[in-house]
Amino acid sequence: MTLSLADVARIADLARLDVTAEEAADVHGKLAAIFGLIDQLAAVDTTGVAPLAHPLECFAPLREDAVSERDERELFQSAAPAVEDGLYLVPRVVE
């Protein structure tokens, strides 16, 4: 796999991460090295091997459909950069 500078810009956009022009060259070189490491996997024969998503393969347990949490809106919103009337404030999205 060859990663281009344009690829870096595209994934940075997907990741909602600003990468400046001067950062991009350094990031590009380092990501290329990391993918050099990762690309070793391509040579492994994994025909018929089921992917392992989780080490213990446990079942998702069921519980009663009951309210288990308290309303802690004020406490949780105390960590927010900007709130008003119990709502999180963000820049206007719809004009």
């Binding site: 990741a15 991460l17 091997v49």
Partner: peptide, 29 residues
């Protein structure tokens, strides 16, 4: 940031099978 970018790439359209699924298969091995 580097790890977010690597992760975003390996999960992105067209690359999922080659990277993420492949890694999960080797993980089982």
């Amino acid at each position: 940031k580097r790890r977010i970018l690597v992760g975003t790439y390996v999960l992105s359209h067209g690359y999922y099978d080659a990277y993420y699924l492949k890694a999960q298969q080797v993980r089982r091995l």
